[in-house]
Structures are given as structure tokens and as C-alpha cells.
Amino acid sequence: MKRCDFVDWMKAVGMFLIVFGHFFGDPFNQFTQPILPKQLGVAMFVFIMGWGLGKVTKDRLSVSYSRLFPMFFWGIIIAVFISGISLLAINNPSISNYSPFVFGVNVIFDGFPANPTTWFIGTYFHIILLWAILFHRIHVTPQLLFCSLLIEIIIRSYFISNETIFIAYMTVPNWLTLFLLGMYMCQQKDQPNSKGLTLIGVLWAVFLVSWALVLNEFNVTQRFPFKNIEVGSHTTNAVLTSVAVSVVYLANTLFSIAVFSRIKAGRIVRFFSRNTIIVFIGHMPLYFVLEPIVRVVFPSGWPKRLCIVLIMYIGLSLLSELLHKWIKVDSIKKWGWEKITRFVPKLAKP
């Protein structure tokens, strides 16, 4: 129960950070530089992936299918919907939105698909694939985590140095240690503890403020998806930026685990937790549709941004809840697996 609570909290809060981060910038961006706050939401999801798969050793194909099916199902539906709207509006089918469904090929392009949040589907596919082939065999140790951290920093530095920062962001090495950390913590014995919540919350806030104060003393250029910390040569800047990215990912993820494992997840948290897929994939396309309407009431500023965040987070979650009641995705998923295993019986075996 303790683990389920913290997973629901991280999914709900992670999704809020992603939506909030798309529409609110400074002064919040300074607390997580050289990344943006919304990327912490993705970090939480990747950690949860590792935690959820940490003890799975059998039925890897069926587990992989079960994880990928909802993401692909809703992702393709939304991509088709966007294509229809785009064809009518600008005579452009937005073909790039389908690239994540072609073996995650989008991660090798130095840019996002037309629907920018769709990029994660390709990364998600690659992480699941690597888990099914390799990671499920691994017992994660602190030594392995340290090695993965070095690999992550080196590979990310290489792409940053080559000015392919979208590839640096989307490929698996950027998320490797977070995923393995999730597996590692899943493989450990539970230590339920509700004490120290206030202290940990204060320490987290102190870390965020201290990080902002330290990084604000450097020349941090505005770039996306990673800002660039400039202190010396091009290579030095790339390495330092990569190190800082890993520190922000890991430190904030660990703080979130420490906090949310001490708080009970109620009905509201579980509601937002189970509706993250549609909110994640659909909130940016919906923004482009609703922004002109919201602008009539709130021309600009924080009221406009807050209104948009509430619509994207709460409104889309409500829509997602309705869609899941109308469309029985689990039944479709089960039917699809039965069809697959009928043609390839070996897949049904552990």
C-alpha cells in the first residue's frame, strides 16, 4: 500500500509538473536549471517505470505488450485526430506525430514531432524493449548505478557537444540511471515510515533555492531542452551541463520519493494518477485549439496561464475518465494479445 501511494502521488504530481511547465516559465525555471521543471515530471515517470518492472522476470513479452498497448492505442488515436484537424486547417497531416510508433525512430531526429509531447512514446518503447531484452536479467546494485551514471553523463555530453540536444534529451541514456534507480528501489525491502515529512519537505525546498542561487551565478544560456552552462571550453561546458542535468534529475526524484512515500494517496490523487496518458499526449494539441478562446476572457498574464493549466490538467483528466468508461481499452488489449498468441503460440509461454 505504501508503494502504491507513492507511485500514485508521483504520477499525479509528475503530470501536473509537465502541464504546468509548458505554460509557466520564470521564476520557476531557475529552480531546476539547466533543465525545465516539466522535465522533472518525465523523470518521475521513468523512475516509476523502473520501479514497476523491478521484480518482473517472467512473461516479459506479455508485460511489455501490456505496458505499450495503452500508450500506442491512445497515442495513435490522438495522432489521427490531429492529422484530421491539420488537414482541414492547414492541409498538413502532421506525419511526424507517427514517427514514435515506428520503433521509436523519432529519437534519432534532432527535434520533436509536431505534437511535442509525443516524443516520449518513442523513448518509452526503447526503455521497455531494453528491459525485455537486457535489464530484466540484471540485479541492480549501487555499483551498477554509479556506472550507469557515468555512461549517462558521457553520452549526454557527447550529444550536447555536437549540438544535437534533442537527441541528448530523447535517447535512453538520458534516462538510464533514473530507470535503474527505480528497479533498484523496487528490489529492496520495504521500509514503511511516515516520520520526518516536514523536515524532508523543508530540505527539498532548501535544495531548490540553493540550486537556483548557485546556478544563477553562472552564465546559463537560454536553450531547449537543456540550457547551457558556460564556464570554459565547449567540451567543458557540455560535460558540466550534463553533470548538472543528472544531479537535478536524481536529487529531485529522490526528494519526491522521500516525501510522497510518507503521504497517503486519496481518491483525488488516484484519479489524476490513472488518467496521465491522455493528459500527457493530448494537452498540447488542446492548447492550440483553446488558447484563442481563453485569450478572449484572459488576454494575457498569469490568469490566462492558470486557466489553461486547469483546463489541461483537470479538464483533460475528466475527459480521459469518460473515454476510459466508453472505450474498454483493457478488453481491446486482451483481445489483441489473444490474436497475437494464436498466430505465434510461443509468445504465450513465460
Rank of each mutant, 00 (worst) to 15 (best):
H139S: 15
P173Y: 00
W9F: 06
V63Y: 08
P27D: 12
T241A: 02
S320M: 02
L61R: 12
D190P: 06
I257V: 13
N193Y: 00
K333R: 15
P173A: 01
V80S: 06
K55H: 10
E163Q: 07
V220G: 01
T118D: 13
W119Y: 05
I85W: 08
Q191V: 09
N275A: 07
I160P: 10
S300E: 15
H22A: 05
D110G: 10
S256G: 10
I278D: 05
I314N: 04
V56A: 07
G111C: 04
V243G: 01
I293H: 05
S233K: 07
M170V: 11
P116Y: 11
L199K: 15
A251S: 14
I108H: 11
L254A: 09
V296A: 09
L347T: 00
M49T: 12
A212F: 05
P93H: 00
T123E: 01
E230M: 09
N106P: 11
V220Y: 02
R223A: 14
V13P: 01
K349N: 14
L17C: 10
F125C: 08
S300F: 12
I18D: 03
G84S: 06
L180V: 07
P303V: 14
P299R: 13
P192V: 08
P192K: 11
N252P: 03
F260V: 08
G301C: 07
V7F: 10
M183K: 08
Y184S: 00
F103Y: 13
V56L: 12
S157Y: 03
A348V: 04
P34S: 05
Y249K: 13
F298Q: 07
F47M: 01
I35P: 06
I165C: 13
L149M: 14
N193L: 04
A89S: 15
I257S: 06
Q191E: 15
I48V: 15
K38T: 06
F135S: 00
L215K: 01
R137D: 11
V309D: 03
C186F: 01
A212P: 11
I293G: 01
I278Y: 06
L61I: 14
V107T: 14
S96A: 08
I308T: 14
I77K: 04
S99L: 15
G196M: 08
I76Y: 02
K304L: 14
R156Q: 15
G111M: 00
W74H: 03
A12T: 02
Q39T: 13
T221Q: 07
S210Q: 04
L197H: 00
V19M: 06
R3K: 15
L254H: 07
H234M: 09
V80M: 14
D330V: 05
Q143N: 11
S317F: 03
P299T: 12
Y287L: 15
F120Q: 00
G301D: 05
N29A: 11
V13L: 12
G75Y: 11
H22K: 02
K333P: 12
Y124I: 01
I82S: 14
R262W: 10
I200A: 00
K328L: 10
L36W: 09
G336F: 09
G122A: 06
L150Y: 09
T141G: 03
T123Q: 02
P292R: 09
F73S: 05
G301Q: 08
V202G: 06
V344I: 15
V80W: 12
L180H: 01
I76R: 07
H234K: 15
D330F: 10
L286N: 03
Y124A: 03
E152V: 08
L199P: 01
